[in-house]
């Protein structure tokens, strides 16, 4: 086991590496329905964030997340800057007392709330919200109701996000740049939901390495449907 701050630095580095590897893939998705800048913007911004996170002295999770968010906000540009970066800065306060299963749930919920609030998007608008809502609700349920270990809970959340990404393909986009296309957005996978999944997958990898746990096959085929209207 390593400290949460060190793990957080490693996580940001893994996210940056993953987004750099997926740059062309994300650009391809975005060029179908948007302005073809998501891959380049995310890769550039998260690389800058990983470098900034690595420079944090005596890192704790909250400071690393806040530094990451500020850098993403300044460097990614477009709507992704405030949505990914601004929400991280805002939610980082939930980790001020350290990283625990409870604070991780609070962090995830606050992040989701900020994304929905800022982007004014709901489930079914074909945005990153379609990946985030099932992921955050599944994570919360796995921790609080099923009392699973955090890494297993995260694995289930990743699976839920993956199906959320698939859900963006057949539906019509009603928020963001893709909404200008109307029905022509149907049949396209949302780039923001996709990059959100990549970020969660990178987090899971690092959590498994730093928690010294491996989760073989997460079964999230029956995710929790949230009670409240989301």
């Amino acid at each position: 086991m390593t400290g949460a701050g060190t793990a957080a630095v490693a996580a940001v580095e893994r996210v940056a590496t993953r987004l750099e590897a997926e740059r062309d893939h994300l650009t391809e998705l975005d060029s179908a329905i948007g302005d073809a800048d998501h891959g380049g913007n995310m890769a550039r911004g998260w690389r800058a964030a990983a470098d900034a996170a690595a420079d944090v002295e005596d890192p704790d999770a909250a400071t690393v997340v806040k530094t990451t968010g500020k850098t993403v906000m300044a460097e990614v540009g477009g709507a992704a800057g405030p949505l990914y970066g601004g929400s991280l800065v805002f939610a980082s306060a939930e980790l001020d007392e350290g990283l625990t299963p409870e604070s991780a749930v609070a962090f995830a919920e606050t992040y989701l709330e900020k994304v929905q609030d800022r982007g004014d998007a709901s489930v079914g608008d074909a945005t990153m919200v379609d990946a985030l809502v099932p992921a955050v609700h599944t994570f919360k349920k796995s921790i609080e109701t099923d009392e699973l270990p955090p890494v297993e809970a995260l694995a289930k959340a990743v699976e839920a996000a993956r199906r959320g990404v698939d859900f963006t393909v057949p539906i019509r986009a009603s928020k963001g740049r893709a909404s200008y296309l109307g029905w022509r957005s149907v049949g396209h996978q949302d780039p923001g939901a996709t990059s959100t999944l990549f970020i969660l997958e990178a987090l899971l990898e690092v959590a498994q390495e730093h928690g010294d746990v491996t989760v073989a096959d997460a079964d999230a085929t029956s995710p929790t449907i949230p009670d409240e209207d989301v």
Binding site: M73, G77, G78, A79, A80, G81, P82, L83, G86, R118, G119, G176, R177
Partner: peptide
């Protein structure tokens, strides 16, 4: 448009 609103809010 769009992200100009969000970035101005931030």
């Amino acid at each position: 448009l769009g992200s100009a609103v969000m970035n101005a809010e931030v």
